[in-house]
Simulated scan of single mutants.
Amino acid sequence: MDPESEGPQIIKVTPLQQMFASCTGAILTSLMVTPLDVVKIRLQAQRNPFSKGKCFVYSNGLMDHLCVCEEEGNRAWYKKPGRFQGTLDAFLKIIRNEGIKSLWSGLPPTLVMAVPATVIYFTCYDQLTYFLKSKLGENESHIPIVAGIVARFGAVTVISPLELIRTKMQSKKFSYEELHRFISRKVSEDGWISLWRGWAPTVLRDVPFSALYWYNYEVLKKWLCEKSGLYKPTFMIHFTSGALSGSIAAIATLPFDVVKTQKQTQLWIDECHKISMPLHMSTWTIMKNIVAKNGFAGLFTGLIPRLIKIAPACAIMISTYESGKAFFQMQNARRQQYQ
């Protein structure tokens, strides 16, 4: 259904062009989704003021990041006072009183990780897809699952230590020398594996998410093309397929997201307050504890906020990425005509 999937055109979009398209999509997604999370965090801080050492999850639409509060009074963007009556009221008052730039507070540090991770992920997925199609055939239905699993596994593994370091830097203002000492001590005490703390629940959440997302995306894209009588998908088909497949994957993997957040939060409570906590509990043990305390519904805490972020983020990212690839494909085709 997609022109890229035809044999002669497989190599028409180069890896560098895929990287540029995914980078553009990542930046655009962050710019459009971050304000939703900034408003959510400000509303949370209004109801339960953040104290030093308190953790909250910040999302730029591409990745979730654990942030640790500092003692900065009202100077910190997440502690600024406000009397908001709801989401829309918060949007309007933040823009009026603080300027529109405040809706993107805290974005630059997270983009440093989110953009490279997204570029690695999408480029690897496409390259693996092309490779597997050349070996297994164009119509092999398991290709999106395999490519999605391998690409996400690689991206999570590369980024995981950087996430730990970035979170530590946010918890306190560290010099590079102090950060080096922290990493050296961590490695000498617990080994190199300690830099991948939280990797297992992240993989359990992100890898199944990726497999479900890409499989459903390809199926929905093909189905919508057939229903519309189109040979290749339009921007709206990419957008709709991305939103629906992202929502399905988000619901299915939410329990692992709850576990990951709880595990990371416990880690940084321990770092900030020196409280002895069972940080080395397995994912399954944490899940059992959540069910015992809050019932099965506890594993799906925060479903609506997660869907509100993930559905538009997936839709914007994939439609921008596919549009970028289509643009480069046209440019490459024109270049070949003149050769």
Rank of each mutant, 00 (worst) to 15 (best):
C314N: 15
S323G: 05
S105K: 00
T265M: 12
A114R: 07
I145A: 13
T240E: 10
I290V: 15
A90L: 09
K172S: 04
E177F: 00
E226V: 11
G99Y: 04
M330Q: 14
I120S: 06
L43H: 02
G148F: 00
R205V: 04
N294H: 14
I275H: 12
S141N: 09
H280P: 09
R166F: 02
M1I: 07
L31H: 09
K54V: 08
P116C: 05
E6A: 12
T285V: 12
L28A: 14
G198D: 06
N97F: 06
V187N: 02
F56A: 10
S59Y: 00
I318A: 01
L31V: 10
T29I: 10
F174V: 03
K222A: 11
T320V: 12
N216L: 13
G302V: 08
A155H: 06
M32I: 11
P49K: 03
Q17P: 14
E189Y: 05
V57W: 08
S134K: 15
L111D: 06
G86R: 05
E72P: 00
S210P: 08
E177P: 00
F209Q: 10
G229H: 08
S134V: 01
Q336P: 00
K186P: 05
K288Y: 11
G61C: 05
R47Y: 07
N97C: 05
P35A: 02
I95V: 13
T14S: 13
M32V: 05
L128F: 14
P3F: 14
S247T: 15
S102V: 04
M113G: 12
A26M: 03
Q262K: 12
H273W: 11
C272G: 02
K260W: 11
L128I: 15
R334M: 09
L62F: 01
T110R: 02
Y321F: 12
S245F: 06
G61W: 00
R96M: 08
G148A: 01
E140M: 09
E163Q: 13
I275D: 14
T14N: 06
G137D: 07
I145D: 04
A117I: 02
M63T: 14
T234G: 04
G148V: 01
T320E: 05
T202Q: 08
L230W: 06
L88Y: 13
P49C: 03
R83A: 15
F122D: 04
Q329P: 01
V146R: 07
R197P: 06
K54P: 01
I94V: 13
T167R: 02
P161G: 05
C314D: 05
F174D: 02
R75W: 11
I275C: 11
L267S: 09
A147R: 01
P35G: 03
L212R: 10
V39D: 03
E178M: 03
Y338R: 15
I304T: 09
T118V: 00
